[in-house]
């Protein structure tokens, strides 16, 4: 077949170029620009080289928020993945219970993030919130605005409430794609419930679970709105995760140079983890 030469077709690509430029490339380059310079306002810049990067990488504040971020992500993954699988396993496979469960499960996912934060803020208030009041009246000394442990507990609970559904829905889809014959075969073999889970359900869910872990990792690693509305990073800096700390630095202190350097480092960490995940997934794919 002869290829038709039509250079005018390039015009059709222009809108996408413009969109991507304004959407991604230009803002990112602005950040890169800031990260190597000191700015004094009035568009006066001074070249600083890699100073901000060194400063951020060596700063205790960054280490602390990065540590908190990893701890938070690790904890919620540790809770949400097994919990999500467990809920998916107990969900009905047919009948009227299916739509009911699916709708109930999707509900938290449909609520805007700032609303979730506000909801949980009010819900957990020690004096008037249902959760806070109840905990206090049964004898727990609970106050998420003042005690770091309680703040962490509430933030994690909120995230579990908000996002476990995603893991449930993905696992449920994975489970439903297993043909009934597998279960029958296991039954005929006399396999126990645990063996059926371990050797049939889990391997068959491997792909969706990898996806669920990746999605939950990304989302929780970049979490901002919900803890910002719930705790504002406090008490002190105890729930200031990376993004919250970043915004504080950029907009609170107006340290644009270090903040830009931190953004890039943050970006590279996310990129690195995704790359590792992607390669692991592809490696598994190649094996099977």
């Amino acid at each position: 077949m002869n290829k038709t030469i039509n250079q005018k077709a390039w015009y059709f690509v222009i809108p996408v170029f413009v969109l991507v430029a304004f959407n991604a490339a230009i803002p990112l380059m602005t950040v890169v620009n800031y990260s190597f310079q000191e700015t004094f306002g009035n568009n006066v810049f001074a070249w600083e080289g890699t100073r901000w990067f060194k400063q951020i990488l060596l700063s205790e504040r960054f280490h602390a928020s990065l540590g908190r971020q990893f701890a938070f992500t690790f904890i919620i993954l540790l809770i949400q993945i097994p919990l999500g699988i467990a809920i998916a396993l107990t969900m009905p496979k047919k009948g009227w219970g299916v739509p009911v469960c699916l709708i109930l499960m999707s509900m938290p996912l449909l609520i805007p993030w700032n609303v979730v934060g506000a909801m949980w803020n009010i819900f957990a208030l020690p004096d008037i919130g249902f959760l806070g009041y109840t905990l206090n009246s049964v004898g727990f000394d609970y106050n998420f605005t003042q005690q770091p442990g309680d703040a962490w507990f509430t933030t994690i609970l909120m995230d579990v409430w908000h996002w476990t559904s995603l893991v449930v829905l993905l696992s449920y889809a994975g489970l439903n794609s297993i043909q009934p014959a597998y279960y029958q075969a296991a039954e005929i073999d006399g396999a126990s419930r645990w063996a059926t889970f371990r050797y049939i359900e889990l391997p068959k869910m491997k792909k969706v679970l990898t996806l669920a872990i990746l999605l939950r990792f990304m989302d929780s690693f970049m979490i901002y709105t919900e803890p910002f509305v719930l705790t504002g990073g406090g008490p002190g800096n105890t729930t200031a995760f990376l993004s919250i700390d970043l915004v504080k630095m950029a907009l609170g202190q107006f340290d644009l140079g270090p903040a830009a350097a931190m953004s890039l480092i943050y970006f590279f960490i996310v990129l690195l983890v995704c790359w590792v995940f992607y390669n692991l997934m592809m490696k598994n794919e190649a094996q099977s």
Binding site: A181, Q184, A185, Y199
Partner: peptide, 10 residues
Amino acid sequence: MVYQQFINYP
């Protein structure tokens, strides 16, 4: 029992 689908432990 042997099924139409090839049922083995993956």
